[in-house]
């Protein structure tokens, strides 16, 4: 027994402190910022503004689920904003240009996202291109295809019904529809990643792919599944975005990859894989959400917002690198 006590106290004190910030750092930062913002601007802590923040965050938070699960496995997909556009263009294109039932169009849009993820997985798994570079290339390809199809114009029309727009604009019991979708997806993925083989294997591959192979895991199958799920999450985000806008253009969601990755990293997903909790990504997304919202309320120009976002991402990454060092 005495030895067990030893492990608990002296030599690990440093690690326990590191763990403290790892676990509570972001929640504390979120709480502090939330309180400061609430007291410094009376328009911040109101029901409508909170719903605004949630709605503005929801799309990023949904797509960040895909980014989180990929990053836990030690992979990454930076083509997600382009995939969002592909799904948006497919869905709206089918509805407006071909008069196809919106439900079928949405299903096709989601399948398109899944195919985009599947293509990424082939590049990464079989051609063995590093995920960052492979998806940097497809980022450009997918985006280009969207511009080619839309010829640079918006697609809109009466075929886009109110029912379709409800996905992005509607409310149920005063809660925005995108927020409800976000919550449902988070609940599903938190359960999958906590209680199923897919979750266990994702963490295992991110922790040590060789060990997982020797332990009988078909790592390629799991990675493929994760890329496809990532594509599907992007598709859902992209479709919600078109529903909110009531139209689509080739540049849909351009630049959102930034906030998505920041949310995942702020949530504690490690760049080196094996670590991260899906629920915390939501907290990361909300942290960015309140920052952006506050700057709008204070009339700070978007140029400053860009600088701030960059600093927040560097902060989150720096935190991750420092943590990794302590493990060694």
């Amino acid at each position: 027994m005495s030895e067990i006590k030893n492990i608990n106290t002296s030599p690990n004190r440093f690690k326990i402190q590191a763990n403290f910030w790892e676990i509570y750092g972001i929640p504390i930062a979120f709480t502090v910022l939330f309180l400061v913002f609430s007291f410094s601007n009376k328009n911040f802590f109101t029901f409508d503004n909170i719903m605004n923040i949630l709605r503005a965050t929801s799309i990023i938070a949904i797509v960040a689920i895909g980014t989180t699960i990929l990053m836990i496995s030690g992979n990454i997909d930076i083509s997600m904003a382009s995939t969002m556009a592909v799904s948006g263009v497919v869905t709206i294109g089918m509805i407006v240009h071909y008069n196809i039932n919106p439900i079928i169009a949405i299903v096709c849009g989601i399948i398109a996202g899944g195919i985009a993820g599947f293509l990424n997985s082939l590049l990464v798994i079989y051609i063995k291109i590093p995920a960052f570079i492979a998806t940097l290339a497809t980022l450009s390809i997918f985006r280009g295809l969207c511009f080619i199809y839309t010829k640079g114009y918006s697609i809109y029309g009466d075929q886009i019904t109110e029912a379709y727009k409800f996905i992005g604009r509607g409310y149920v019991f005063k809660i925005p529809m995108p927020v409800i979708i976000m919550i449902v997806l988070y609940v599903i993925f938190i359960i999958i990643f906590k209680y199923t083989k897919i979750g266990l294997y994702t963490y295992a591959i991110g922790s040590n792919e060789r060990v997982s192979l020797l332990s009988g895991v078909n790592a390629n199958k799991i990675k493929m599944l994760l890329f496809v799920l990532g594509g599907v999450m992007s598709a859902i985000g992209g479709i919600i975005m078109t529903a909110r806008l009531g139209s689509v253009q080739g540049s849909l969601a351009d630049g959102t990859e930034f906030g998505i990755i920041t949310a995942a990293v702020l949530g504690g997903v490690s760049l080196s894989g094996g670590k991260g909790v899906i629920g915390r990504t939501l907290l990361g997304a909300l942290l960015i959400g309140i920052l952006n919202n506050y700057m709008v309320l204070m009339n700070i120009s978007t140029f400053y917002q860009m600088v701030t976002s960059g600093i927040v991402l560097l902060f989150a990454l720096g935190l991750d690198r420092l943590k990794s060092k302590q493990v060694l």
Binding site: K197, L200, Y201, Y203, A204, G206, S207, N208, R210, V211, S212, L214, S215, G216, V217, G274, K275, V327
Partner: peptide
């Protein structure tokens, strides 16, 4: 270390890993 164990995961995920599969 290189082939047998997930250093970053808890014991409770390592020991039953194959069993879970």
């Amino acid at each position: 270390k290189e082939e047998g164990i997930f250093l970053g995961l808890p014991i409770s995920k390592n020991i039953p890993f194959i069993l879970y599969g």
